[in-house]
């Protein structure tokens, strides 16, 4: 018998939560160290009723989107330059690879000194954590374009900006989506990490507040929200975009 995937998933999560609840109920660890799922839901409901969780989600998403848009735009431009101009690739390209290896939270001290404890500082960390992943993917996407597309377009008159917007970007788009997807994932990690260290509003701040208040259920609740948003945007926004592009190109 073939069991539908959805059924398997539902059974798994129900069992996971039931096991967790059971483990909490046998009182191996004190409640304030190992809360039950019920405690977590209760805590989330409280944070929902006073609006703090929505405020946190809104703040983090606003920073995330701002940082991601900056990273996507910057990575697009830099990636195209790297792919099309050899000297840029040989010089700036090697620096980009190096910078990509720096975890985004490692930018936090610099961001605090440059921007202070502000939104701009957190957005900076978010953007800088994502921009190089986007750049590298865009660059390899543009480098892998079938050269006949470019030649055919040149032959029928495409030059400069029209070559970039009419051919290079659409031709490399399937690659770019995976770059944006990766950039998004780095941005999400970056924004939460930065908020933890800046401790200035947002979901990362709520995590930190949970630690200071010894409130483990708040910490777990916020972590579940962070996971949910990550899965949600990946599965809905990027997956759909990818499916649509792949279908049009006949790649799937």
């Amino acid at each position: 018998m073939i069991i539908p995937v959805l059924v398997k998933k539902v059974v798994f999560y129900v069992a996971l939560i039931a096991g967790w609840q059971a483990l909490a109920m046998v009182d191996v660890w004190p409640e304030n160290i190992f809360p039950s799922p019920y405690d977590v839901v209760e805590d989330l409901a409280y944070m929902a009723s006073d609006g703090s969780v929505f405020h946190g989600i809104g703040t983090s998403l606003a920073r995330l989107i701002t940082g991601f848009v900056i990273a996507a735009a910057g990575g697009l431009v830099l990636g195209i330059f790297m792919a099309r101009i050899t000297i840029v690739d040989q010089t700036i390209g090697s620096l980009v690879l190096g910078l990509q290896s720096i975890p985004s939270v490692a930018w936090v001290p610099l961001a605090i000194l440059w921007f202070g404890l502000t939104d701009a500082g957190i957005v900076f960390v978010t953007a800088v954590g994502a921009v190089f992943a986007v750049t590298i993917n865009v660059s390899s996407g543009v480098k892998n374009i079938n050269p006949h597309y470019v030649e055919a377009a040149r032959n029928i008159g495409a030059r400069g900006g029209k070559m970039i917007t009419g051919v290079l970007i659409p031709a490399a788009f399937p690659y770019m989506i995976s770059g944006f997807k990766q950039g998004w994932a780095f941005a999400w990690r970056g924004v939460i990490g930065a908020e933890l260290l800046f401790s200035y509003l947002g979901l990362g701040f709520l995590l930190n507040a949970g630690r200071q208040l010894n409130d483990v259920s708040q910490i777990i609740g916020i972590m579940i929200i962070i996971m949910g948003i990550g899965i949600g945007i990946d599965g809905f926004v990027f997956k759909r975009l990818e499916d649509r592009v792949m279908a049009r190109w006949g790649l799937r």
């Binding site: 006949h148 030649e151 377009a153 495409a158 006949g250």
Partner: peptide, 28 residues
């Protein structure tokens, strides 16, 4: 534009439909 190449594999743009492929040169 007075000498136009037709490639072995066509080199058509997969992101455009037939009409937009044909009109590409006029559009640019």
């Amino acid at each position: 534009p007075e000498r136009i190449m037709i490639f072995q594999e066509g080199a058509l743009f997969p992101w455009l439909n037939v009409r937009d492929n044909v009109e590409f040169g006029l559009r640019v």
